[in-house]
């Protein structure tokens, strides 16, 4: 693993001057991922969303490399087309440089509207990296629920009301769905462990064929937490097993981090305004349901990873 001293010498591909909110998780995630491409030529694709609108306000681009955005639901197909062009031009001898390809999409553009396009691109085996910057709702349009929104969250289309306490459904497990495409590499990571993000991004760039990385990328506005605490919050997501870090390489599942003790989900929920209503009297059942869902998914994940399916000691 390269040290930060070395990594800091890699040319910055996502420069300051973009218009993401102060403290946006996307800025951190994108910088970490692109940094792992080291000195390669990179083409970045991007789905419509916060990242795209904040980074390419004409005539300014924050991308210090080639970049393409075309629409919301098609980052997979678009970057797949770029990669197909590369393959074709390369094989015909019309291009001599080597390139790597990465597409970024939010959870809306990845779990929901761009799901088909992504699935197609993965199945076709393009040599691309797709990175989902999962901030768990449609933040760019003003915090509407997506299929990545966790159960109980208060969003503008799953508002915590007098009768319905936030989103009623648990989140879609996209990383597992991507792994089910039998692609060479699928992983879930969290910025609280930069070494993990770096290692996975590097691996994703290096494998031959499609790679998928899901990064939990907090949104200070949508999640309503104290902005500077982003890393602590993501750490809580990992410790409570809300966001397990794992990878699936050539069909082999591997858990990358196992919390030493049982940390209840409240540790992750409490600092966030979007879950505040869950702590009001009468909503205890919601927290219980969320905890059950997390514990069940954790046990299933351990089983897939060939580990003993047991909860951490309380």
């Amino acid at each position: 693993m390269a040290t930060l001293k070395e990594l800091a010498k890699v040319e910055e591909r996502f420069v300051g001057g973009h218009r993401l909110c102060a403290g946006c998780g996307h800025g951190i995630s994108v910088r970490m991922v692109l940094n792992a491409a080291e000195d390669a030529n990179v083409v970045v694709g991007c789905a419509t969303g916060c990242l795209e609108v904040a980074s390419t306000i004409y005539p300014y681009t924050a991308w210090n490399c080639s970049f393409i955005h075309s629409a919301f639901e098609n980052a997979g197909a678009t970057i797949g087309g770029v990669e197909a062009a590369y393959k074709s031009l390369k094989k015909q001898g019309k291009l001599d440089k080597d390139f790597k390809f990465v597409a970024f999409g939010g959870d809306g553009g990845t779990y929901d509207i761009g799901f088909q396009s992504l699935s197609g691109a993965m199945e076709r085996g393009h040599n691309i990296v797709y990175v989902c910057l999962d901030n768990e709702a449609y933040m760019n349009t003003g915090i509407q629920r997506s299929s990545a929104t966790p159960m109980g969250a208060d969003t503008t289309t799953s508002p915590a009301g007098k009768v319905v306490p936030g989103k009623q459904q648990p989140r879609k497990d996209l990383t597992a769905i991507m792994a089910a495409h039998n692609i060479p590499y699928a992983a879930q990571t969290a910025i609280s462990n930069w070494q993990d993000v770096h290692r996975k991004a590097k691996k994703a760039f290096d494998v031959e064929g499609p790679a998928f990385i899901n990064i939990l990328s907090p949104c200070p506005r949508g999640w309503r937490y104290n902005t500077p605490d982003i890393v602590e919050l993501v750490k809580a997501a990992v410790e409570t097993r809300f966001w397990p870090m794992y990878e699936v390489e050539n069909g082999k599942w591997k858990l990358n981090y196992k919390p030493k003790k049982y940390v209840p989900i409240e540790e992750f929920l409490k600092p966030q305004g979007r879950f505040r209503h869950l702590f009001a009297p009468g909503n205890e059942h919601m927290i219980k349901a969320i905890q059950e869902e997390i514990d069940n998914r954790w046990l299933a994940l351990l089983e897939r990873c060939g580990e003993t399916p047991e909860l951490p000691p309380k």
Partner: peptide, 25 residues
């Protein structure tokens, strides 16, 4: 010499064509 991209929909067909054309193909 064509790379034939067997997309999963026409929406992706034009999207991939856009990516390819933008890439210089």
């Amino acid at each position: 010499d064509t790379e034939f991209v067997t997309v999963e929909s026409e929406h992706s067909a034009m999207s991939a064509a856009i990516g390819a054309s933008a890439a210089g193909a």
